[in-house]
């Protein structure tokens, strides 16, 4: 049933021209060069250190690795990370 509704949402997004992140509630990542990463539609901050940021998404986790991390802005739906981004990885659990 759940799978079916996800399928429907995906189809709806394709048909209606509304951006997928809005319809599906999936994260949207904007990476500027290697030094600035903006993530929309995240759930919460799980862990933050100089070399790693772990975010909870509505499904799974997002692990970002790099160096000299600074959380420039934290808003309810958006988070902006500055520093050198080496690796962005989605982790299912």
């Amino acid at each position: 049933m759940r799978k079916w509704s996800a399928q429907f949402k995906k189809w709806f997004a394709e048909v209606s021209d509304i951006p997928e992140d809005v319809v599906l509630g999936v994260p949207r990542l904007i990476l500027t060069g290697q030094f600035r990463l903006s993530i929309e539609n995240y759930e919460s901050v799980l862990a933050f250190s100089k070399t790693e940021l772990r975010l909870a998404l509505n499904k799974g986790e997002l692990h970002i690795a790099g160096d000299d991390f600074v959380l420039e802005t934290i808003l309810e739906k958006e988070i902006v990370l500055q520093g050198r981004v080496d690796d962005v990885r989605f982790v299912d659990n």
Binding site: S44, V45, L46, A47, F48, S49, K50, F69, V70, L71, E72, T73, I74, E76
Partner: peptide
């Protein structure tokens, strides 16, 4: 990080977070 989560929940602005060491932000 838990403090940051609470701040987010309570809509308190918080910015320019840097990790100093294991226990300190």
């Amino acid at each position: 990080e838990k403090f940051i989560r609470i701040c987010m929940r309570e809509h308190v602005k918080i910015w320019h977070i840097v990790r100093k060491n294991e226990t300190t932000l």
